[in-house]
């Protein structure tokens, strides 16, 4: 009897130790950056953990944060939906590469009584964020939406308080369509906003818009859809009113891709294309033997990247991200194959 209890305790202890080493021994990777693809990434990494036991910790802190973290070499990979400009490569201690992962849409979402469906042009959106259009029933908005009864409500623009690739793509689009925006505010990950409230990450902007009647914000489509928030149809360069959707994003991404995949998709000339579509990337060092990184860690990372652009893709469409089109996939494969450890390619 007594011995039985003792042995039971021993078995429990053994189980505990095994469990502990299981948790301790589990391999892990750390990434940080763009919040634009965070719903897709966290979903992918959850599936990846179930399939392989590897825990990929992705912290959604904004693209600028991800770039800074990879530059400081404090993460395994950075996430960004603004690519690194040629002039900025010198800020990195070694050569970095961009691996495209998914394609999404920056949508204009708003909180109005009755959740009406709105149509907006880039010009009007720019004027709202410039602080020139301040009421929802302003003539400029009303003219575009003759069938909607717009309330006499202050418009409260919400923008990103952190440096953001979503902001980059959004302001790239506004700069392309509004000369005033281009000269007054410009196009960058963080800009000096003439009007509105700041919120952290895509989740933060979506959170504020969801809670604030009269507000308008720009977030990735997944955040709006997950929270049943209204999104505007935007007039594209071909003069078509386009709703952000899997199809219209894919249409915007149907063109050619450069070998290093560094391309903006905004203001597409595809007829059915959504005008604020964006590619998002994972940024890693081409040579993985730096600091005290082990070969195992580098292998783990390469395996994850390969999985993300192949098997991982099947988890993103249900969240309304578009998968990589064939030319982008081909370019991504070549880039992953170029990643090395001590000069030896990690994926053959």
């Amino acid at each position: 009897m007594k011995r039985n209890a003792v042995s039971r305790k021993l078995v429990l202890l053994a189980l505990f130790v095994v469990g502990l080493t299981g948790v301790l021994g589990a391999q892990s990777l750390l990434g940080s950056g763009a919040s634009f693809p965070a719903p897709a990434y966290t979903k992918m990494f959850d599936e990846y953990y179930k399939a392989t036991g590897v825990k990929v910790n992705y912290q959604s802190i904004g693209s600028s944060g991800g770039l800074k973290n990879i530059q400081d070499r404090v993460v395994d990979f950075g996430g960004s939906d603004s690519f690194i400009k040629d002039a900025d490569f010198s800020k990195y201690p070694a050569q970095v590469v961009h691996i495209p992962t998914v394609i999404g849409a920056v949508v204009v979402t708003y909180n109005l009584p009755g959740n009406p469906k709105l149509r907006l042009t880039g010009d009007v959106v720019a004027d709202i964020y410039l602080g020139k259009i301040t009421k929802w029933n302003d003539k400029a908005v009303a003219e575009l939406n003759p069938n909607v009864k717009l309330p006499n409500l202050a418009i409260m623009p919400v923008y990103r308080s952190d440096g953001s690739g979503t902001t980059f793509n959004f302001t790239a689009y506004l700069s392309a369509v509004s000369a005033e925006w281009k000269s007054k505010v410009g196009n960058a990950n963080s800009v000096s906003w003439p009007a509105g409230q700041g919120a952290a990450q895509n989740a933060g902007v979506a959170g504020v818009v969801k809670q604030t009647q009269g507000s308008v914000g720009y977030v990735e489509l997944a955040y709006a859809n997950q929270n049943s928030m209204a999104v505007a149809a935007i007039k594209n360069s071909s003069g078509m009113w386009v709703d952000p959707s899997l199809e219209s994003i894919s249409a915007a991404a149907a063109g050619a891709f450069p070998a290093d995949t560094r391309i903006l998709l905004v203001n597409t000339d595809a007829k059915e294309g959504y005008p604020i579509s964006a590619l998002t990337w994972i940024i890693v060092y081409r040579e993985q033997n730096y600091g005290n990184r082990s070969r195992e860690q580098a292998d783990q990372l390469a395996k994850l990247l390969w999985w993300m652009i192949h098997d991982g893709q099947k988890y993103v469409t249900s969240l309304d991200y578009a998968t990589l089109p064939a030319p982008a996939l081909k370019a991504a494969e070549a880039i992953i194959k170029s990643i090395t450890y001590d000069g030896q390619p990690l994926v053959k």
Binding site: I61, G65, L67, K68, S190, G196, Q197, G198, A199
Partner: peptide
């Protein structure tokens, strides 16, 4: 989290501490 000089009680703003909290982990 607005980086403008607040002008009224209802203005949005930032304090030294809050701007560090929201922008430190990045740098343009």
């Amino acid at each position: 989290n607005a980086t403008r000089i607040p002008t009224s009680l209802f203005s949005l703003g930032n304090t030294l501490a809050s701007v560090i909290a929201s922008q430190f982990n990045e740098a343009a």
